[in-house]
Nucleic acid binder design. Structure first.
Lengths: 344, 344
DNA sequence: GACTCTTGTGTGAACGGTCACATTCAGCGC
DNA sequence: GCGCTGAATGTGACCGTTCACACAAGAGTC
């Protein structure tokens, strides 16, 4: 039976229940000898405080809910892992609630999802469903958000994000540096009404280099959607470098390239985003930008925690995006005579 | 806003608080007219029951904790998704706690991970850490387990598993049917002291065909470990078909094959396990066995639910393993055109 | 018309904590 | 000795809900 109460402990230690409560809640003015006795009583009885009673009596709860879409996507899964890890070490319990990708939730459904009113929430809002959920959340719930791009001019302290814009710019510069006349972009669905950060970074680099700025092609998140989108893109001979919205999309593009007889990287350079564990083993191994989703999740938790308790320690920042050059990117095919290009 | 109580509702509806409680907890003996009034009062006030109070007062709580290792592994993530989906539709809140892969937790730590003592648990125990956690869980907690193989002779009603043995046998037969003299196996780490189910199924098929039974090579879960293990395996010319523990491992093997100059499927056939979304897009597209992890998760939840409430409806069973033949498996190189014998 | 039986509703007491306040008992200056 | 202070501990009420009952009507039964 797991049914010992604070009063049982008090009886065993020969003190009042309030003293036990004091001991449990850390240092108040309790004599060392008393604390000692209470502690041993707790240990012997195997007492564990009842979370529900604690919460009911007004004590701040150490739990949070993560709202995310599809957890099988690498970014979501990694951020979730970061949150979970940080939360658990801080003694928080983590609940999870998965949003349907397409159908954005309405306010009622959302409220019903949160186990208890007032439960703190972290939203992983890389896609539109997440962003919408974030908007719909009632203002009184404490919330931190992992987003693709900060909203508006004044992001406020509730949001964390990776520097996708810089990352995309770096990847694009890498390709331009290899001699490509321009870089095409297979964009992820934008999470907001505005252009995605990665798309902007890509455009930054193109503009900075003064090259043509082709229309980005909007696709999905999966290999399947990358494959689909690439089939039309690769019909055009002038496409020599493709920056993909993520590594999964890049995988689809690699396949499309194979099917249309384009050798990578000889005829076509493909660069991904995220650096999934599999990406180094693809054929060819994928050039990509490594992103610290886990660190991002940890940071989000730190944010939420300081929202609940301003005296909580600050979280260390997450890692910068890092370009990982592998086999899938090579020099512009137009420059080298025939078989010259191609080894990396 | 979120601070209305059952008594506020009662006052607004002109009834006693107990009547409101009855209405909330479904149909007891409440007059239709009264129920109606209470319902509108609830709607107008935007009342939401306080979970903590409800739990404290002894109401069974509709929540569960999922104990799993690394959620970025496809099997874990998919099973989690299945659980979450089924749980949410049934009105359960899902907490998640991630186990470190290597360091198995001790009983105390495990208990501390549960939101409250006696919290129902689903353990995703595909690996040793999960199995150990399952063993350590105190007997009083209601638990369902998603396992790689049922424990002992009498699995009991708490466990669900996929027919990995049959699945492996099918995949192996497929390869033998293509003329391969035998099939080598790159096994996942076994979750128990006994041989993994997939390994047994593979052996079943070899034995049934009366061919040589090479020692299985034990590796890990990742592309990296598959790559590592394959490098030594592929030094041997007689290895023409490899059954991999999962698709990620197969990815590593594909890369190793490329590096050692073995064309797949011409010189080497590679078959995976799981059918991850990416597997259809690999180069070459992976022949694999599709497993219904999501359905398995749903089933596990159904099990737990009936454990808590025997009158709950039964869950529909999950799908059978299905062999998906793609590009990575082909006829035995010894028979076909081109230089005969292993050393081409 | 007094008697059960059913149906609907109200009342008091938990549940296991925390909070605000009351109490005890040293040590201290006067 | 007296009151004053402050540290250590105890007491009562309350958080919002459910549970076990008690109670008030109306419907049958005889």
């Amino acid at each position: 039976m797991s049914g010992h109460t604070i009063r049982d402990v008090a009886r065993a230690a020969g003190v009042s229940y309030q003293t036990v409560s004091r001991v449990i809640n850390g240092n108040e003015r309790v004599a060392d000898a008393t604390r000692e006795r209470v502690m041993t009583a707790i240990g012997e009885l195997g007492y564990r405080p009842n979370q529900a009673a604690r919460e009911l009596a007004g004590k701040a709860v150490r739990s949070l809910t993560v709202l995310t879409s599809d957890t099988s996507l690498y970014g979501n899964a990694s951020a979730l892992r970061g949150i979970e890890e940080a939360a658990r070490t801080a003694g928080f319990a983590v609940s999870i609630s998965v949003l349907a990708r397409n159908a954005a939730p309405d306010a009622d459904e959302l409220r019903a999802r949160l186990v208890r009113p007032g439960e703190p929430v972290i939203v992983i809002a890389f896609d539109a469903a997440g962003v919408r959920a974030l908007e719909l959340l009632p203002p009184e719930v404490p919330v931190a958000a992992v987003v693709e791009r900060p909203p508006g001019v004044d992001p406020g302290p509730r949001h964390v994000w990776l520097d996708d814009r810089l990352a995309a710019a770096r990847a694009t510069r890498h390709l331009l540096g290899l001699g490509h006349r321009t870089v095409h972009h297979l964009a992820l669905p934008s999470s907001t009404a505005r252009t995605a950060q990665r798309t902007e970074g890509w455009r930054d680099a193109l503009r900075e280099a003064g090259v043509a700025e082709p229309e980005p092609v909007e696709g999905g998140w999966t290999p399947r959607s990358g494959h689909l989108a690439a089939r039309s893109l690769l019909e055009r001979a002038d496409v020599t470098a493709v920056l993909c919205g993520n590594d999964d999309v890049a995988l689809g593009v690699l396949r499309a390239a194979r099917e249309t007889g384009r050798a990578v990287p000889r005829d076509l350079s493909v660069v991904g985003f995220d650096d999934m564990p599999a990406s180094a083993y693809l054929a060819p191994a994928l050039t990509t930008v490594r992103l610290d989703f886990e660190g991002l999740g940890r940071t989000a938790f730190g944010l939420l925690r300081r929202l609940l308790d301003p005296s909580a320690p600050a979280q260390e920042p997450c890692a910068e995006p890092e370009l990982i050059v592998r086999e899938s990117s090579g020099p512009w095919p137009g420059s080298g005579p025939g078989p010259a290009g191609g080894t990396s």
